[in-house]
Design a protein around this nucleic acid. Structure first.
Lengths: 145, 145
DNA sequence: GGCAACCATGAAAATGATTTTCATTTACAG
DNA sequence: CTGTAAATGAAAATCATTTTCATGGTTGCC
């Protein structure tokens, strides 16, 4: 699922019972943060919310809960740059890209091209794909010296 | 670097001084385990060594140290199936493949095709690539029901 | 309105993978 | 041999993440 606007988000309601509709504060806040902060950790999302959205301040616990919820629905995908913590990104077509990570300085370079559609199409005949990650790890230009 | 045999491994010596040659037991043991156990965790490597190689039994601490050493030299690459622990794989051409991971049952399906050479070639003009990971996450056939 | 059930929340505690510390042993150079 | 540096393992520390638990809010239903 992809949110292009807040209006789209309003469509995302959880039904408590056939007659109930609920909007979860922390889920909304986390999605808002992820629209602003690229491949952020749970802590970074919490920090961003505490600085930028005083009215939407959320505990680290709730951020983790919201992230797990969103990952379960494949609205957010976890990334791994091998730095010991999980980073998160909106799983939208618009945002779709990959990463080059420098093992020395941890610089992350966004790679915009994604030529993986053919292999994904093959997998799709068997699997229900929720997201994919492609990370290239190595040394960036300045760290090669 | 790629080890195709134990002979190749014997070439991998660390020089303590210009006149010194050293073979590290734990590094050897971990490489041996990784040739047998697919995408193993540090704990699984330790367990395998304790069962299969009584004479090469190594503490979990040393396994972590050897793994970090090997990842630093890009002889081993860390994998992440989003299950909260790091898995490791030999970074050899022969072993090269990717993974489909089911979010429900954690089944891992090996994907042998790798059509990423063109994008990697582009990156190579700027970056020194040590390894790349490509993981597709979703639901396998039986878990879609 | 008011009760009951459910859900969201946050603080603190627990967990669990990984790293660090530290004391001991091993291996090599001289 | 002997001194030095690296390797090792057990235990402690660390740190990201999850769980527990107590509380308050929201909705459905009477």
């Amino acid at each position: 699922m992809v949110f292009k606007s807040d209006n789209d988000f309003q469509m995302m309601k959880t039904t408590r019972s056939p007659h109930t509709v609920k909007t979860v504060k922390s889920v909304h806040a986390v999605l808002e943060a992820l629209q602003q902060v690229n491949h952020a950790t749970a802590q970074e999302i919490t920090d961003w919310l505490s600085v930028s959205k005083r009215d939407n301040e959320i505990s680290l616990t709730s951020v983790y809960r919201a992230l797990n919820h969103l990952v379960g629905k494949a609205e957010v995908k976890p990334l791994n740059f091998n730095d010991g913590q999980v980073r998160y990104e909106l799983n939208t077509q618009k945002m779709h890209h990959h990463h080059f990570v420098c093992t020395q300085c941890n610089h992350v370079q966004v790679v915009d091209v994604c030529p993986f559609e053919q292999i994904l199409d093959t997998l799709r005949s068997t699997f229900l794909i929720q997201y994919h990650n492609f990370e290239v790890i190595g040394l960036c230009e300045s760290c090669q010296n």
